[in-house]
C-alpha cells in the first residue's frame, strides 16, 4: 500500500535471520531444558504456598514482585493513554465531541446480546478470579472478562453512564490493596509480599494464604483499568 521502496531487502534480511535461527535452535534440545528452578518449584510449591495451581503460586508468591510490576505497567499504560487522548481530544477543536454525539444507536442484536451476556460475563469473571489458585485463570484473565462485561453494555448503549468515578475508586483501592498486602507481609513476617493467613489445605477455595486476596485485587484493578482504557479509546464522553 504505502510502500514504494522495494521489499527484497527486508525479505533478504528475514531469510538471513531465519537461517541464523535455524542454526542456533539446532543446539537447543526440545523437551529437556535444564529446568532447575521449575523442578524445584514444582516440588515445593503446594507445600509452601498451598495453591493447587502452580503457575498461580509462581505468579503471586515466588514472583509476586513481577506481578506488582505488571500491574503497574497496565496502570501506566492506561494513565499514558488517558494523557495522550486527553491532549488529542482537546486539540481536536470539538470535532471529536460532535462525532460521538451523532454516533448511531446500536442495533437490536447488539443491545439484546449485551443484555443477555452481561450477567454471564459477570459470573464467569468472578469465578475465574476466585478460583485462580485452583484452576487455570486468575486475576488478569478474570479482570479482562469483567472489563468486557462492563464494556459491551457501553457499546450497546453509548448514552448510558459508565460510572467513571466508581471505576476510579475501585481501580485505586484495588491497586493500593495489593501494595498494602505486601507491606503487611513486611510488617508481619518481615518480608515484602510474604504470605499471610496460612496455607490451608491444597485444593479448597479458602486456601493458599494471601493468593486469593491478591487475585481479587488484581482482578478488580485490571477490570476497571481495561474498561476505562477501552472507553477512553472509544472517544470522549465528558469533560
Amino acid at each position: 500500500m504505502l510502500t514504494s521502496r522495494p521489499r527484497w531487502p527486508a525479505l533478504l534480511f528475514i531469510l538471513g535471520l531465519a537461517l541464523l535461527l535455524t542454526a542456533l535452535l539446532r543446539d537447543l534440545h526440545f523437551g529437556n531444558a535444564p529446568m532447575q528452578v521449575g523442578q524445584a518449584i514444582n516440588g515445593v510449591a503446594a507445600h509452601e504456598t498451598g495453591a493447587a495451581n502452580v503457575v498461580a503460586s509462581v505468579l503471586l508468591a515466588y514472583r509476586g514482585l513481577d506481578t506488582l510490576g505488571e500491574l503497574a505497567i497496565l496502570f501506566a499504560a492506561a494513565t499514558g493513554a488517558g494523557l495522550v487522548l486527553g491532549i488529542a481530544f482537546r486539540n481536536g477543536n470539538g470535532e471529536a465531541q460532535a462525532k460521538t454525539n451523532t454516533e448511531p444507536p446500536a442495533g437490536f442484536i447488539l443491545r439484546k446480546g449485551a443484555d443477555l451476556m452481561f450477567p454471564f460475563l459477570l459470573i464467569l469473571g468472578a469465578y475465574v478470579i476466585l478460583h485462580g489458585h485452583l484452576t487455570p485463570g486468575g486475576g488478569f484473565q478474570g479482570g479482562a472478562i469483567l472489563a468486557a462485561a462492563f464494556f459491551v453494555p457501553q457499546l450497546a448503549r453509548p448514552s448510558s453512564p459508565f460510572n467513571e468515578r466508581t471505576a476510579h475508586w475501585v481501580e485505586a483501592l484495588a491497586g493500593a490493596s495489593f501494595v498494602l498486602i505486601g507491606i503487611a507481609g513486611l510488617a508481619g513476617a518481615g518480608w515484602f509480599l510474604a504470605p499471610l493467613l496460612g496455607t490451608g489445605s491444597v485444593g479448597e477455595l479458602l486456601s493458599a494464604g494471601s493468593i486469593p486476596l491478591l487475585q481479587l485485587a488484581i482482578g478488580l484493578k485490571v477490570g476497571s483499568e481495561l474498561a476505562g482504557l477501552m472507553i477512553a479509546l472509544h472517544g470522549p464522553k465528558e469533560t
Binding site: 531444558a33 529446568m35 528452578v37 521449575g38 523442578q39 518449584i41 514444582n42 510449591a45 502452580v54 503457575v55 503460586s57 509462581v58 505468579l59 514472583r63 513481577d66 506481578t67 510490576g69 505488571e70 505497567i73 497496565l74 486468575g138 488478569f140
Partner: peptide, 15 residues
C-alpha cells in the same frame, strides 16, 4: 509436571 515458570513469565509478558 511441565515447567511452571515460563508459563508465569508469558502471562506477565502478555499483559
Amino acid at each position: 509436571m511441565v515447567d511452571p515458570l515460563p508459563q508465569a513469565l508469558i502471562l506477565t509478558a502478555i499483559v
